[in-house]
C-alpha cells in the first residue's frame, strides 16, 4: 500500500518535471507547439539554422535533411542574406545619388556642398532628435565632446570653439558620412536627408556660446 503510494507520487513528480521543462530558459527555447509553423521554409534573413540534422524526426524533405535546416549553401559563408552586386546604386524616393566624394577630400566637400534643407525650426528639431540617436553618446548633449562614450573614446572636440566652430556645413556632412580622424563613417547608418538634418542641428551647437 505504502509502496504503491510512493511509486505513484514519484510518477506524478516525473510528469510534473516533464511539464515544467516546457518552459524556455537560457539556451533552451522551450517546447514548440506545431514546430513546422515556427520554422520557416524559405530562407530567413536574420535567423539561420546550420545544423543539417535539426528537426530530422519530423522531416518530410526530399533531400533527407532536417526539417529546420535553413541555410543557403550556395552563398559565400553559407549565409542566407547576400550582399548586393558591387556598384549597386540604391534607389531613393527623393532621387539622391550616391555620395561620391572620397574620404580624404574633406576640404573639397567643405567648399562645394550646400545643405538642401532650409534651416527651419522643424528641420532643426528633427535634427536634434537624430542627433540624440546617433551622436549624443560621444559628442554630448550640447556638443561639448563630453558624452559618456566620448570621455572613454577620447579625442572628441567641442563644437563651439577653436577650429571646429567655423567648419562649413559641407565639411560637417562629409565627416558624418565618411568619418574623419577617430570618428567612423556613419553614412551606412544615417540616410542622406537625415544627415543634412543633423548638420542643421550641429550648426546651432557650433554657434552657441
Amino acid at each position: 500500500m505504502l509502496r504503491n503510494n510512493i511509486i505513484s507520487a514519484i510518477v506524478i513528480l516525473v510528469i510534473v518535471q516533464i511539464f515544467s521543462s516546457c518552459r524556455a530558459k537560457d539556451d533552451h527555447p522551450g517546447v514548440e507547439y506545431a514546430p513546422n509553423m515556427y520554422h520557416s521554409v524559405p530562407y530567413e534573413g536574420l535567423s539561420q539554422i546550420t545544423d543539417e540534422s535539426e528537426g530530422k524526426w519530423l522531416s518530410s524533405r526530399i533531400d533527407e535533411k532536417g526539417e529546420y535546416f535553413n541555410t543557403n549553401v550556395n552563398n559565400p559563408h553559407n549565409m542566407n542574406m547576400r550582399e548586393p552586386v558591387p556598384g549597386t546604386v540604391k534607389r531613393t524616393e527623393d532621387g539622391y545619388l550616391p555620395y561620391r566624394i572620397p574620404k580624404d577630400s574633406v576640404e573639397l566637400a567643405g567648399r562645394i556642398l550646400t545643405n538642401p534643407l532650409d534651416s527651419t525650426t522643424e528641420v532643426i528639431n528633427q535634427g536634434k532628435e537624430l542627433y540624440a540617436r546617433f551622436c549624443v553618446h560621444c559628442h554630448g548633449e550640447n556638443g561639448q565632446g563630453d558624452g559618456k562614450v566620448g570621455v572613454v573614446f577620447k579625442g572628441v572636440p567641442p563644437y563651439n570653439v577653436g577650429r571646429v566652430k567655423d567648419l562649413s556645413e559641407g565639411y560637417v556632412f562629409h565627416v558624418i558620412t565618411m568619418g574623419k580622424g577617430r570618428m567612423g563613417a556613419h553614412g551606412s547608418q544615417v540616410s542622406y536627408e537625415d544627415r543634412w538634418k543633423i548638420v542643421r542641428y550641429v550648426q546651432t551647437l557650433q554657434n552657441q556660446n
Partner: peptide, 11 residues
C-alpha cells in the same frame, strides 16, 4: 508548463 508550450519568454 502547458501554457509555456510555444511561448519562448525567458529564452
Amino acid at each position: 508548463g502547458l501554457l509555456t508550450v510555444g511561448v519562448q519568454a525567458g529564452y
